[in-house]
Amino acid sequence: MTEQPAPPEPTPEQAALFARVRRMMLIAGLTTALAVAAVLIAIGYRLFRGSESTVSTDTTAMLPRGARILSTAVAGDRLVVTLDIGGVTEIRTFDARTLKPAGRLRFANEP
């Protein structure tokens, strides 16, 4: 078997180029690691913060005598309740986190 000759030593220009490429690769690797860490931190923050947003409250909302609940829905951060109060339709909205009244919309028929 014949031995292959050893590769020649790099010239000073080549050595400077190799050093520059290594430095650029180190910077790119650190930047990538920092970006991945930032994404993982953001995901973890959202997961742990999302579990704290559940609120358990016991609230009794008083309705007028004879009122009927027709439907309920959630729209964004609001709880929407549609009522029938003596033949008149009314929509009441509540804050979903605190269950405090946020608004009231009444519908009436024109005479």
Rank of each mutant, 00 (worst) to 15 (best):
E3R: 14
A6Q: 15
P7Q: 14
P7N: 10
P10T: 12
P10A: 11
T11M: 06
A16E: 11
R22Q: 15
M25F: 04
G29C: 10
L30I: 12
L30Y: 04
T32R: 10
T32G: 11
A33M: 04
A33I: 08
L34W: 11
A35T: 02
V39H: 08
V39Q: 10
L40V: 00
L40P: 02
G44E: 08
L47A: 12
F48C: 07
R49F: 01
T54Q: 10
V55W: 02
T57P: 08
T59Y: 10
M62G: 09
P64I: 04
P64M: 12
G66W: 05
G66I: 08
G66Y: 07
A67M: 04
R68Q: 14
L70H: 13
V74F: 07
A75T: 05
G76C: 03
G76L: 06
T82A: 13
D84N: 14
I85K: 01
G86I: 12
G86W: 14
G87K: 11
T89S: 10
T89M: 06
T93I: 03
D95T: 02
R97T: 05
T98Q: 00
T98Y: 08
P101I: 02
P101N: 05
A102S: 13
G103C: 07
R104N: 11
R104Q: 07
L105I: 10
F107W: 13
F107N: 14
A108C: 04
N109C: 01
N109L: 12
